[in-house]
């Protein structure tokens, strides 16, 4: 069970969340009856071994995918009942992401990558906000660099700037230090938590790194698709 109290302030809530996929004629259950509630401003870790269903859960909570059964509410909207268009709108308004593989667009510069979410929303201040956040993550000298010209740590910092620049209500981070060396990983984690506190964002952190999980206020552990702690 989730370690958080289920109360009216939960910004993210899941009920009986089940995900099944068809695989070579048989049905494979990846997630089974997961219940979860995360409060506004909280940092929650989802931990578990490889293949335990962490990433699938993150995809469902963030509205990237729909559950086979069960429901998900994000900021009061039942996103599991939304179509892709409506879920995209929710993502644009309320959700930010940081991924293990950074997921920057390699044909855009660091600045353009950070500006992207705001531009998708048609905001006019995209550029100044993006520069501010890139300065915040210490990349003011690398605005015009392309992802391939940046190190892994720098790429992840661009991704973090992009995530916070749209001032999301909930930030989903999928193994954000998984592709980095220990030292860089620590710096990235520090940056992530600092910005999270500054912006009072709700953080959902998927990781198998125990030390990272411990920096969160709460954690949910998955094994074989079910919540065990």
């Amino acid at each position: 069970m989730a370690t958080t109290e289920q109360n009216g302030d939960a910004i993210l809530r899941a009920e009986n969340l089940t995900k099944e996929v068809d695989f070579e004629g048989s049905t494979l259950t990846i997630l089974r009856d997961v219940d979860l509630a995360i409060n506004r401003g909280e940092a929650v870790a989802i931990v578990g071994e490889s293949g335990s269903g962490k990433t699938t859960l993150l995809g469902l909570l963030a509205g990237l995918d729909v559950p086979t059964r069960g429901r998900v509410w994000l900021d009061g909207d039942e996103i599991s009942a939304f179509n892709e268009d409506e879920r995209a709108q929710v993502r644009a308004r309320a959700v930010g992401f940081v991924f293990q593989t950074f997921q920057l667009i390699d044909s855009l510069t660091a600045l353009e990558n950070v500006m992207l979410p705001a531009e998708l929303r048609g905001e006019r201040t995209a550029r100044t906000d993006a520069i501010r956040y890139l300065e915040r993550v210490g990349l003011q000298e690398r605005l015009k660099h392309y992802p391939r010209q940046l190190s892994g740590g720098e790429q992840q910092r661009v991704a973090i700037a992009r995530a916070f620049c749209s001032e999301p209500l909930v930030l989903f981070a999928d193994e954000p230090t998984g592709n980095l060396d220990t030292k860089t990983g620590h710096r990235i984690a520090d940056l992530l938590f600092e910005l999270n506190q500054e912006n009072e964002t709700t953080l959902v952190l998927v990781t198998h790194d125990k030390s990272l999980a411990e920096r969160c206020q709460a954690s949910t552990e998955l094994a074989a698709g079910a919540v065990i702690a």
């Binding site: 963030a62 990237l64 892709e84 268009d85 995209a88 709108q89 929710v90 993502r91 644009a92 308004r93 959700v95 992401f97 997921q103 920057l104 667009i105 992207l116 979410p117 998708l120 929303r121 992009r162 749209s166």
Partner: peptide, 10 residues
């Protein structure tokens, strides 16, 4: 995929 994650609609 990235654009959609960032909220771009189909």
């Amino acid at each position: 995929g990235i654009l959609k994650t960032l909220g771009a609609r189909p």
